[in-house]
Design a protein around this nucleic acid. Structure first.
Lengths: 90, 90
DNA sequence: TATAAATATAATAATATAATAATATTGAAA
DNA sequence: TTTCAATATTATTATATTATTATATTTATA
């Protein structure tokens, strides 16, 4: 579930984080779960593009989502790991 | 020098680590500096390809190199940060 | 100073990723 | 049960990355 130990798995997680938009999404989700439109409003980016980035984060094991009414809320699967990861780069 | 605090800089470092070959190079360099051919022998990869990956790691601020006789030795600029980064994914 | 070993650079072809535009799906409420 | 808001999917185009091949550069040494 989520984070991987092997080489390809690790590289995949780094790849998921290797885009400014996705990195911003992750930083936002460190504050708590957010629905797609909340996330979209943070950027000058189209809705389908955000959806695509979210999908990349999802199949990389970084986020997951749940339906909440007619909203789809995304959240970090392992927020503490991501917090540590990003803290190292400060 | 090396690691960056801003969004693009962070994304660039993740991008540098987002390839299995480069990740393996970094893991090897955690043991200490290595010349190109030492690194090359670890993989089934051509010499120019290793050189290219090393160059990506270099301009991303992850490694630097120094001449040592006729060898060029690569080393991690901030080994402790990388050690922490990789430890998070375990 | 010619040669060999070590490494880098350049050009190319193959592949992957990104953004965009158009369309489809889903759930809630009217 | 139609409509709307929220989100996803698909296809397309543009761009970036990767591996490969060929060639160049550099350093040490014969």
């Amino acid at each position: 579930m989520g984070f991987q130990n092997n080489l390809k798995g690790k590289a995949q997680i780094f790849k998921a984080l290797a885009h400014p938009t996705r990195l911003s999404i992750v930083e936002k989700l460190l504050e708590g779960e957010r629905c797609v439109n909340d996330i979209r409003d943070l950027f000058e980016v189209t809705q389908p593009n955000i959806s695509q980035h979210l999908n990349i984060l999802k199949y990389s094991g970084v986020v997951d989502c749940r339906q909440k009414g007619n909203l789809r809320c995304y959240f970090l699967i392992e927020p503490e790991k991501l917090r540590k990861l990003l803290n190292v780069l400060k």
